[in-house]
Computed example of a mutant assay.
Amino acid sequence: MVVSYKKLWKLLIDWEMKKKDLCSLAGISASSLAKLGKNENVNTDILVKMCAALQCDFSDIM
């Protein structure tokens, strides 16, 4: 199964947020964000941190 994070990038655009802002807000590394940009697998903890920071659910970002 292929995972796409297009919803995450759309959400960041809607919130007028940059990727580095998400890293700071969620406390995730730039390498984790790079994996997301390539639609690669990331640890569930990364997704949880992002959802908590953005106050959303998994289905809102992927």
Rank of each mutant, 00 (worst) to 15 (best):
M1S: 15
M1R: 14
V2M: 13
V3Y: 07
V3T: 15
S4C: 12
Y5N: 03
Y5R: 02
Y5V: 06
K6T: 13
K7P: 02
K7R: 11
K7G: 02
L8G: 03
L8V: 03
L8Y: 01
W9Q: 02
W9P: 01
W9E: 03
W9L: 04
W9D: 02
W9S: 03
K10M: 06
K10A: 10
K10C: 01
L11P: 00
L11K: 02
L12E: 01
I13N: 13
D14G: 10
D14P: 00
W15N: 07
W15Q: 06
W15S: 01
W15K: 09
E16F: 00
E16W: 01
M17K: 04
M17Q: 01
M17L: 10
M17Y: 02
K18Y: 04
K18G: 13
K18L: 05
K19S: 11
K19M: 04
D21T: 08
D21L: 09
L22I: 08
L22S: 04
L22Y: 07
L22D: 05
C23L: 10
C23K: 05
L25I: 15
A26T: 07
A26Q: 07
A26V: 11
A26I: 12
A26L: 10
I28M: 10
I28A: 05
I28L: 08
S29W: 05
S29F: 05
S29T: 15
S29Y: 05
S29C: 09
A30Q: 15
A30I: 15
S31N: 14
S31H: 12
S32I: 10
L33T: 03
L33Q: 08
L33A: 05
A34F: 08
K35P: 02
K35Q: 11
K35C: 09
L36H: 04
L36R: 05
L36M: 14
K38M: 13
K38L: 14
K38F: 08
E40P: 01
E40H: 11
E40L: 13
N41L: 14
N41D: 15
N41S: 14
N41V: 13
V42W: 09
V42L: 06
N43M: 03
T44F: 11
T44M: 14
T44Y: 12
T44N: 11
L47W: 09
L47G: 02
V48W: 05
V48L: 11
V48H: 06
K49C: 06
K49W: 09
K49F: 04
K49N: 07
M50Q: 05
C51V: 05
A53W: 05
A53S: 12
A53G: 02
A53E: 03
Q55W: 00
Q55M: 01
Q55E: 07
Q55V: 00
C56Q: 01
C56M: 00
C56V: 03
D57G: 00
D57S: 08
D57Q: 06
D57E: 09
F58Y: 15
F58Q: 08
S59E: 07
S59K: 10
D60W: 00
D60Q: 01
D60P: 01
D60I: 00
I61A: 04
I61T: 02
M62W: 15
